[in-house]
Amino acid sequence: DRHTIHIGDITIHLEGFSEEELKLAEELIKRGIHLEEVKRILEELYR
C-alpha cells in the first residue's frame, strides 16, 4: 500500500505504514526531523 504525506509543496511517499504511523511521521517531519530519522523511529516503534 502507498501513502502520501503533503507538507507545503513537498510530497513524501511512504509505503507499508498504517494511518497512525503516517500521522506520527508527518508530525515529526513538520517538527524538522530528517526523513531518515523518521523512518528509523517508525521502524523501532512499530516493527
Rank of each mutant, 00 (worst) to 15 (best):
D1L: 01
D1G: 12
D1Y: 00
D1I: 13
D1M: 01
D1Q: 06
D1F: 00
D1S: 07
D1V: 07
D1K: 06
R2E: 14
R2I: 14
R2D: 13
R2A: 14
R2Q: 12
R2F: 14
R2Y: 14
R2L: 11
R2T: 15
R2V: 14
R2N: 14
H3S: 10
H3Q: 07
H3T: 12
H3N: 09
H3R: 04
H3A: 10
H3W: 01
H3I: 13
H3P: 08
T4A: 09
T4N: 08
T4K: 10
T4I: 10
T4E: 12
T4P: 10
T4D: 11
T4G: 06
T4S: 10
I5A: 03
I5H: 04
I5M: 01
I5F: 00
I5C: 02
I5D: 08
I5S: 06
H6K: 13
H6E: 10
H6N: 11
H6W: 00
H6V: 14
H6I: 13
H6R: 12
H6G: 10
H6P: 07
I7P: 06
I7H: 09
I7W: 05
I7L: 11
I7N: 07
I7A: 13
I7K: 04
I7S: 09
I7M: 13
I7E: 07
I7V: 12
I7D: 10
G8V: 08
G8C: 10
G8T: 08
G8N: 07
G8R: 03
G8W: 02
G8P: 05
G8I: 06
G8D: 07
G8S: 08
G8Q: 07
G8A: 06
G8Y: 01
D9T: 13
D9A: 12
D9V: 05
D9C: 08
D9E: 10
D9L: 09
D9Q: 10
D9S: 10
I10W: 08
I10D: 06
I10A: 07
I10N: 10
I10H: 11
I10E: 07
I10G: 07
T11R: 07
T11Q: 12
T11N: 03
T11E: 10
T11D: 09
T11P: 04
T11G: 06
T11Y: 05
T11L: 05
T11A: 05
T11S: 11
I12L: 08
I12G: 04
I12Y: 02
I12Q: 06
I12E: 03
I12R: 03
I12M: 07
I12F: 02
I12C: 07
H13D: 11
H13Q: 12
H13K: 11
H13Y: 12
H13G: 08
H13I: 14
H13V: 14
H13L: 09
H13P: 03
H13F: 11
H13A: 09
L14R: 02
L14M: 11
L14A: 06
L14G: 04
L14E: 01
L14P: 02
L14F: 12
L14C: 15
L14V: 11
E15K: 12
E15F: 07
E15C: 12
E15P: 14
E15D: 13
E15Y: 05
E15T: 13
E15G: 11
E15N: 14
E15V: 13
G16I: 13
G16E: 05
G16M: 07
G16K: 09
G16N: 07
G16P: 04
G16T: 10
G16L: 08
G16Q: 04
G16S: 05
G16H: 07
F17E: 03
F17Y: 14
F17M: 07
F17D: 04
F17H: 05
F17L: 09
F17P: 04
F17N: 05
F17T: 05
F17R: 05
F17K: 03
F17V: 12
S18I: 05
S18V: 07
S18M: 09
S18D: 11
E19S: 13
E19A: 12
E19F: 12
E19K: 10
E19G: 13
E19Y: 13
E19I: 11
E19T: 12
E19H: 13
E19L: 13
E20I: 09
E20G: 12
E20M: 10
E20K: 10
E20W: 05
E20N: 09
E20Y: 08
E21H: 15
E21F: 15
E21T: 11
E21V: 15
E21R: 07
E21G: 15
E21D: 09
L22K: 11
L22I: 13
L22E: 05
L22V: 13
L22Q: 09
L22W: 12
L22C: 13
L22P: 01
K23M: 09
K23N: 06
K23S: 10
K23E: 06
K23T: 09
K23C: 03
K23G: 06
K23V: 12
K23W: 10
K23P: 04
K23D: 04
L24D: 02
L24M: 13
L24A: 04
L24W: 08
L24T: 11
L24N: 03
A25T: 05
A25R: 02
A25S: 03
A25K: 03
A25Y: 04
A25N: 00
A25P: 01
A25F: 13
A25Q: 01
A25V: 13
A25L: 09
E26G: 05
E26T: 13
E26M: 11
E26R: 09
E26W: 07
E26L: 12
E26I: 11
E26H: 09
E26P: 01
E27V: 10
E27H: 12
E27M: 09
E27L: 06
E27C: 01
E27G: 07
E27T: 12
E27D: 10
E27R: 08
E27K: 07
L28V: 02
L28P: 00
L28E: 01
L28T: 01
L28Q: 01
L28Y: 03
L28M: 13
L28W: 03
L28D: 00
L28N: 00
L28R: 01
L28A: 02
L28C: 02
L28S: 01
L28F: 06
I29P: 00
I29L: 12
I29R: 02
I29F: 09
I29C: 03
I29K: 01
I29A: 02
I29D: 00
K30M: 07
K30V: 07
K30W: 04
K30N: 14
K30E: 05
K30I: 09
K30Q: 09
K30T: 13
R31S: 11
R31T: 11
R31L: 14
R31A: 12
R31V: 11
R31M: 09
R31K: 09
R31D: 05
R31Q: 14
G32N: 07
G32Q: 03
G32I: 14
G32S: 07
G32L: 10
G32V: 08
G32E: 03
G32M: 12
G32R: 02
G32C: 04
G32Y: 06
G32A: 10
I33V: 12
I33H: 08
I33R: 04
I33K: 06
I33Y: 10
I33F: 11
I33N: 03
I33E: 03
H34T: 15
H34A: 12
H34D: 14
H34F: 03
H34P: 15
H34C: 08
H34Q: 13
H34Y: 03
L35C: 02
L35S: 06
L35D: 05
L35T: 06
L35R: 04
L35W: 14
L35Q: 04
L35A: 10
L35N: 04
L35M: 13
L35I: 15
E36W: 02
E36A: 10
E36M: 06
E36L: 06
E36V: 06
E36P: 08
E36G: 07
E37S: 04
E37P: 01
E37R: 03
E37K: 05
E37F: 05
E37I: 12
E37C: 01
E37A: 07
E37M: 06
V38I: 11
V38F: 04
V38C: 01
V38Q: 00
V38H: 00
V38W: 03
V38S: 00
V38M: 07
V38T: 01
V38K: 00
V38A: 03
V38L: 11
K39E: 03
K39W: 13
K39G: 02
K39T: 05
K39F: 13
K39A: 07
K39Q: 08
K39I: 14
K39Y: 09
K39D: 01
R40A: 06
R40E: 03
R40S: 04
R40H: 05
R40D: 01
R40K: 10
R40Q: 07
R40W: 02
R40L: 08
R40I: 05
R40C: 01
R40M: 06
I41M: 10
I41C: 03
I41Y: 05
I41Q: 03
I41E: 02
I41R: 02
I41V: 05
I41L: 09
I41H: 01
I41F: 08
L42F: 02
L42Q: 00
L42V: 10
L42P: 00
L42E: 00
L42R: 00
L42T: 00
L42W: 01
L42K: 00
L42I: 13
E43I: 03
E43W: 03
E43K: 03
E43S: 01
E43N: 03
E43R: 01
E43D: 11
E43Q: 02
E43M: 02
E44F: 03
E44N: 04
E44W: 04
E44Q: 02
E44L: 03
E44K: 01
E44M: 01
E44R: 00
E44A: 01
L45S: 05
L45D: 15
L45C: 12
L45P: 00
L45G: 09
L45N: 06
L45K: 03
L45W: 14
L45M: 12
L45V: 05
Y46M: 15
Y46L: 15
Y46I: 15
Y46G: 15
Y46D: 15
Y46P: 15
Y46R: 15
Y46E: 15
Y46S: 15
Y46W: 14
R47F: 09
R47K: 15
R47D: 15
R47C: 13
R47N: 15
R47E: 15
R47Y: 03
